[in-house]
Design a binder for these strands. Structure first.
Length: 287
DNA sequence: TACCAGGAGAGCG
DNA sequence: CGCTCTCATGGT
């Protein structure tokens, strides 16, 4: 076991790790356990710092601070949001919500699997995929075996039927084709980050099964393009209810509005709206 | 049971 | 274009 303490305030681990950006974190008491690359990690927060434990000794923690985006000035991000009633409410409801910076392949593959799936189901499919095709990672003694997210080359070598057996349904051929293009070098994921946002989006949307929404998720959650603004069913509900309450706006119109209205950290604003709507939905449903 | 889920793509008028 | 249907599967 190895550990480290990182001073940071306003980091809501629960909101961040369960908000539908990443699908491999589970709550364990007051802590969160997950896999980042080849590392098993347990994270806990005490308000002014974040405590990390790993299964293996770590000398350079850059992979973790980068993933968690600890260097981000959240206050500055929040200040850049439009000062309207809806955004204020969203920020108050989940202060400390952050955007992660994930590996492009895991992020792309996960969101290909996400289409018309609930978050709990996406987690299940990803878990099955990792158990069957991921490389084992070192875990602390007493813990169940864990696996890295499968490499593109590994998935490129399996059959569509094998993938369907992981319960991903019609998404199987999409994931398979993505794995093949990345494994063959036809799609260079590492190069996308240095392209202009629009070009990177185009490249992603060349993939079958990847439209505007999934491409924007990858642009935001893996590459950190700050203005990428995924518009999904929840965000449509939020934008419709909060900003277009009178008339029914079309997707194209909402897309356009989102791209201009929310400022230089639109992606962050989007995640607050998304989380806010989901939490509100649960509250309403329970009461 | 009926409906919906962090969509995308094909078919149709 | 813009709308509708379909895709596979599980949760509520």
């Amino acid at each position: 076991m190895s550990g480290n303490v990182f001073p940071v305030r306003d980091y809501d681990l629960a909101a961040t790790l369960s908000s539908g950006q990443a699908f491999r974190w589970r709550e364990e008491g007051a802590a969160w356990v997950g896999i980042i690359g080849k590392h098993w990690v347990r994270l806990a927060s005490d308000g002014c710092s974040l405590v990390a434990e790993t299964a293996e000794p770590v000398s350079d923690w850059t992979w973790l601070t980068h993933y968690l985006q600890l260097e981000i000035d959240l206050e500055a991000v929040l200040r850049s949001f439009p000062q309207d009633e809806a955004m204020r409410a969203a920020v108050v409801s989940c202060r400390g919500l952050r955007l992660l910076r994930q590996g492009p392949w895991e992020c792309l593959a996960s969101f290909i699997l996400s289409s018309t799936k609930q978050i709990v189901q996406i987690r299940q499919i990803v878990a099955t995929l990792c158990e069957r095709y991921g490389e084992p990672v070192k875990v602390p003694s007493g813990y169940a075996p864990e696996y890295a997210f499968p490499e593109p080359a590994r998935l490129a070598a399996v059959s569509e039927a094998d993938l369907r057996a992981c319960k991903m349904g019609f998404r199987a051929p999409y994931l398979l084709e993505a794995a093949r293009r990345v494994a063959s070098g036809q799609l260079d994921l590492a190069a996308l980050g240095s392209l202009p946002e629009a070009q990177a989006r185009e490249r992603l949307m060349d993939l079958p099964g990847v439209g505007r929404k999934i491409a924007d998720c990858v642009l935001l959650f893996a590459y950190g393009f700050p203005e990428a603004f995924p518009v999904d069913v929840w965000v449509i509900k939020a934008l419709q209810k909060l900003y277009f309450p009178r008339r029914r706006a079309k997707l194209r119109r909402l897309q356009e509005f989102a791209g201009t209205y929310f400022g230089p950290h639109g992606g962050y604003a989007q995640q607050y709206l998304f989380h806010y709507m989901r939490v509100m939905g649960n509250v309403v449903r329970k009461s």
